[in-house]
């Protein structure tokens, strides 16, 4: 009852961003598909998105996913950071923490509600849009060559990069240091993780790196939130 009320509030606050993010990816994705539908597309190189698919560099087909990949990445990261700002930076600015935290509820539960919201809001809309676009890309006759199955997983992994940035920005929001000292360290960490997964040919490694990074940041988040002064 209490947890639900909190969850509903958090979701309500993040709603506009869900719509915006999903809208962006859907729009661009559709445009991309439509513009590349013309049969007999000319040139011969392809890259899905540089992190994962260098190995396919020499396939001689054009994939419209060249631009969907970057869009998805940027949107996921943008969404992650925006949500973290909404949930963890804005209460500071508007001095809402004292009201929010004087709840008959463990502080850890409050944090869980926030994080659960962030997780759902990043993965579900973007994941669904990506699934839809991918499904479009695999329909026979829609594209000159249907998209390989591996792309599907890659798309989802790109969405999880958004989660990494979400957690990093959340940590930065809770940090009490000055912005020019260590406040943005966690964001730099998120960036480093993205760099670390780039160029990984085995998707398994990508999963391991992201999951480990997320676990580390989650631990730090709980630690920080429970002890922090408001």
């Amino acid at each position: 009852m209490k947890f639900l009320a909190l969850l509903k509030k958090e979701l309500r606050e993040c709603l506009p961003w869900i719509a915006l993010a999903a809208g962006i990816v859907l729009t661009f994705g559709t445009i991309e598909f439509l513009s590349k539908r013309a049969p007999g597309a000319a040139y011969f190189h392809y890259r899905f998105f540089n992190p994962f698919s260098e190995v396919d560099r020499y396939m001689l087909i054009t994939y419209p996913t060249e631009s969907i990949g970057p869009i998805l990445t940027l949107t996921a990261i943008g969404l992650g950071i925006t949500l973290a700002i909404r949930q963890f930076w804005m209460p500071h600015y508007f001095k809402e923490w004292n009201y929010l935290l004087h709840r008959p509820m463990d502080r850890g539960t409050v944090l869980t509600a926030k994080l659960l919201t962030g997780f759902l809001v990043i993965t579900v809309p973007l994941g669904l849009v990506w699934t839809y676009l991918f499904w479009q890309g695999t329909r026979p006759g829609f594209l000159p060559v249907p998209l390989p199955a591996r792309h599907f997983v890659e798309g989802w992994l790109i969405v999880t990069q958004g989660l990494v940035f979400y957690l990093g920005a959340a940590l930065a929001g809770l940090s009490r240091a000055k912005w020019y000292t260590t406040k943005l360290v966690s964001l730099a960490f998120a960036l480093w993780i993205i760099g670390a997964v780039a160029g990984q040919r085995l998707l398994v490694w990508v999963v391991i790196i992201i999951v480990t990074a997320a676990a580390v940041m989650l631990y730090q988040l709980f630690n920080s939130f429970l002890k922090r002064e408001f």
Binding site: K95, Y99, L100, H102
Partner: peptide, 13 residues
């Protein structure tokens, strides 16, 4: 325990 904090900020929206 009821609490009215400094500045009595609530949830804006």
């Amino acid at each position: 325990i009821g609490y009215v904090s400094e500045g009595h900020r609530l949830i804006r929206w």
